Amino acid sequence: MITDTFDRRTIAKMEVALERACLLLPISGEKYRPRRIIASKIVECAYRGETTLGSLTDAGYAAAMQLIASAQSVRKKEKEIAD
């Protein structure tokens, strides 16, 4: 379990990083999957020993940007197919 691996301070920073990164996501019906993906990238960052708020937030932002780019790519392909 994650609480067995990291101290309270690190977990608190991870939670802040997750919330910050999720602010980048467009508001949509599905929130669980993107949050889970972003959280996993933040956890990976922490496992590498990068536990500053800045590092964790950067990892979350990068994951959010990848999700946004992926969604835009899918929408673009769908539009091309529809046209």
Rank of each mutant, 00 (worst) to 15 (best):
M1P: 11
I2H: 14
I2V: 12
T3H: 15
D4P: 05
D4A: 12
D4V: 14
D4F: 14
D4I: 13
T5Y: 14
T5M: 09
F6T: 07
D7V: 10
T10R: 12
T10D: 03
I11W: 00
I11V: 12
I11D: 00
I11R: 15
A12E: 08
A12I: 12
A12N: 14
M14Q: 01
M14N: 03
E15N: 14
E15G: 10
V16L: 13
A17R: 04
A17N: 06
A17H: 02
A17Y: 01
E19F: 08
E19C: 13
E19S: 12
E19H: 15
R20E: 03
R20S: 04
R20N: 09
A21I: 05
A21F: 02
C22L: 10
C22E: 04
L24N: 04
L24W: 09
L24G: 00
L24Q: 09
L25K: 03
P26F: 00
I27G: 02
S28V: 12
G29L: 08
E30Q: 12
E30T: 13
E30V: 09
K31F: 01
K31Y: 10
Y32W: 14
R33V: 07
R33M: 06
R35L: 02
R35Y: 09
R36I: 04
R36E: 02
R36L: 06
R36A: 04
R36G: 02
I37Q: 11
I37F: 09
I37E: 00
I37L: 09
I38S: 00
I38E: 00
I38M: 00
I38L: 03
A39G: 11
A39E: 07
K41Y: 07
K41I: 01
I42A: 01
I42Q: 01
I42W: 01
V43L: 11
V43D: 00
E44N: 11
E44F: 15
E44D: 06
Y47P: 08
R48S: 05
R48P: 00
E50A: 11
E50Q: 14
T51H: 07
T51L: 09
L53G: 04
L53H: 04
G54P: 07
S55H: 11
S55C: 13
S55Q: 15
S55W: 12
L56M: 08
L56Q: 04
T57V: 09
D58H: 15
D58F: 13
D58T: 13
A59L: 02
A59I: 05
G60F: 04
G60I: 03
G60A: 07
Y61G: 01
Y61I: 11
A62L: 09
A62G: 05
A64E: 01
A64F: 02
A64C: 05
M65R: 15
Q66L: 08
Q66V: 10
L67D: 01
A69T: 11
A69N: 12
S70Q: 14
S70N: 15
A71D: 03
A71M: 03
Q72N: 12
V74E: 08
V74A: 11
R75C: 08
R75Q: 10
R75H: 08
R75Y: 02
R75N: 06
K76P: 06
K76M: 11
K76Q: 10
K77N: 06
K77M: 10
K77E: 05
E78Y: 12
E78D: 04
E80P: 13
I81W: 13
A82F: 14
A82L: 08
A82E: 04
A82H: 15
A82M: 10
D83Q: 11
